[in-house]
C-alpha cells in the first residue's frame, strides 16, 4: 500500500511540471505582453511612469530575456518562495489577489460537493433497487436534464425567474450593506443566504452525473450472484443491499472525492461569472481578457495541480476501499 502511494506520488511530479510548462506557454500565446501595453496606455494618458519600477520588473521576471529563462525565473519563484509573480492589472502581487478568492471558490466547491454526494448516493441506490419504477423514470429524466443544462445557463434562467417573479436580484456574495463591513455573524448569515444558489446550481450537474453512475454500477452489482447468496443467508433486505452491492457500487463514487471537488472548482467558473461573485472565476476571466499573464498562469497552475492532487487522492481512496486494487487483482473489475 505504501509503495503504491509513493509510486503514485512520484508519477505526479513530472505531471505537475508539465502542467506548469503548458500553463506558461498558454499565457504567452497572445501576441505582445501586458507590461508593454500597460506602459503604452499610461503614456497615452499622460501619467508619469516610474522608470525604476519598470526596470525592476523587467529584471525580476526576465521580461527582456528568452522564453525559457522567463519560465525558469517564474517557476523558481513559485517553487522556492511560493510567489506567483506580480499582477499588472491589480498592481499588487498575485498571491494577495487570489488567496481569499480561491478560498471562497473552494468553500463553494466543497459545499456543492457535500450536497452532491448526500443527494446522489441515496437516490442512486434507490432508483437502482426500484428499477423501472416511477421514481426511476423521474430521476433518469431529471438526470438527463441536469446533464444537458450547464450551470451557467441554469444560473441565467434562475436569475430571470428570481428577478421577474420574486423581485429578488440574485448574485454577488454579500448584500450591499455588508460588502465593506468587517466579519460578523450577520455578515456570515448574509454570505450563506447568497451562497446557496451557486452551490445548488453547481451541485445539480454533478448530482445528475453521480446518480447515473451510482445507478449503473448498482444495477451491475445487483445482478451478481453474491447478492442472492447474501439473501439466502437470511440477512434482511436492507442489510443485504448495504453490505453487498452498495459496498462495491459505492467505490467509484468514493473515488470521485478527488476530482469532483476540483471539477466544481473549475466548472464553477462560468457560473461565478454569471452570478457576479467575487471569487476566482471572474478574476481568471479578466486576467485572460487583459493578458495579465502571471495572474492567469497562477490560476492554471493551481487548478492543474489541484486536479492532479485530486486524482491522486481518488486513486489512493480507491485502493483503500477496494482490496482488489490493493492486491493487484483484476478480477471482476
Amino acid at each position: 500500500m505504501l509503495s503504491y502511494i509513493i509510486g503514485r506520488l512520484l508519477r505526479m511530479i513530472p505531471q505537475v511540471f508539465l502542467i506548469s510548462i503548458l500553463a506558461f506557454i498558454i499565457v504567452q500565446l497572445p501576441p505582445g505582453d501586458y507590461l508593454t501595453e500597460h506602459l503604452n496606455r499610461l503614456r497615452q494618458s499622460g501619467a508619469s511612469i516610474d522608470q525604476a519600477e519598470v526596470e525592476r520588473f523587467t529584471k525580476m521576471y526576465g521580461l527582456d530575456q528568452p522564453m525559457h529563462i522567463q519560465y525558469l525565473k517564474w517557476i523558481t519563484n513559485i517553487v522556492t518562495r511560493g510567489s506567483f509573480g506580480y499582477s499588472f492589472e491589480w498592481q499588487k502581487p498575485v498571491n494577495e489577489v487570489i488567496v481569499g478568492r480561491i478560498g471562497t471558490t473552494f468553500v463553494i466547491a466543497f459545499l456543492s460537493f457535500v450536497v452532491c454526494w448526500s443527494l446522489a448516493i441515496p437516490i442512486g441506490i434507490y432508483v437502482a433497487v426500484r428499477q423501472y419504477s416511477l421514481a426511476d423514470y423521474f430521476f433518469t429524466f431529471l438526470g438527463f436534464i441536469g446533464l444537458a443544462t450547464p450551470g451557467f445557463l441554469l444560473a441565467l434562467v434562475i436569475m430571470y425567474v428570481a428577478y421577474t417573479y420574486f423581485g429578488i436580484r440574485v448574485g454577488g456574495l454579500f448584500s450591499p450593506e455588508f460588502e465593506t463591513q468587517p466579519w460578523s455573524w450577520a455578515k456570515f448569515v448574509d454570505l450563506l443566504s447568497h451562497l446557496w444558489l451557486p452551490v445548488l446550481i453547481l451541485a445539480i450537474g454533478g448530482t445528475a452525473n453521480l446518480i447515473r453512475t451510482m445507478r449503473a454500477t448498482m444495477l451491475d452489482e445487483l445482478r451478481k450472484q453474491y447478492v442472492m447468496v447474501a439473501r439466502a443467508k437470511g440477512l434482511s433486505e436492507f442489510a443485504v443491499l448495504l453490505r453487498y452491492p452498495v459496498r462495491i457500487a459505492i467505490n467509484p463514487i468514493l473515488s470521485t472525492f478527488g476530482w469532483l471537488l476540483v471539477w466544481f472548482f473549475s466548472g464553477g467558473m462560468v457560473v461565478e461569472i454569471v452570478l457576479n461573485l467575487n471569487t476566482a472565476g471572474p478574476v481568471l476571466w479578466r486576467s485572460l481578457m487583459r493578458q495579465d499573464m502571471y495572474m492567469a498562469g497562477a490560476y492554471i497552475v493551481i487548478i492543474g495541480t489541484l486536479t492532479a492532487l485530486g486524482s491522486l487522492i481518488s486513486d489512493i481512496l480507491l485502493a483503500i476501499v477496494d482490496p482488489r486494487i490493493r492486491f493487484g487483482s483484476m478480477e471482476g473489475l
Partner: peptide, 8 residues
C-alpha cells in the same frame, strides 16, 4: 486530462 476543460 489534469487540466480542467473550462479554464483551459
Amino acid at each position: 486530462v489534469s487540466l480542467p476543460a473550462i479554464p483551459l
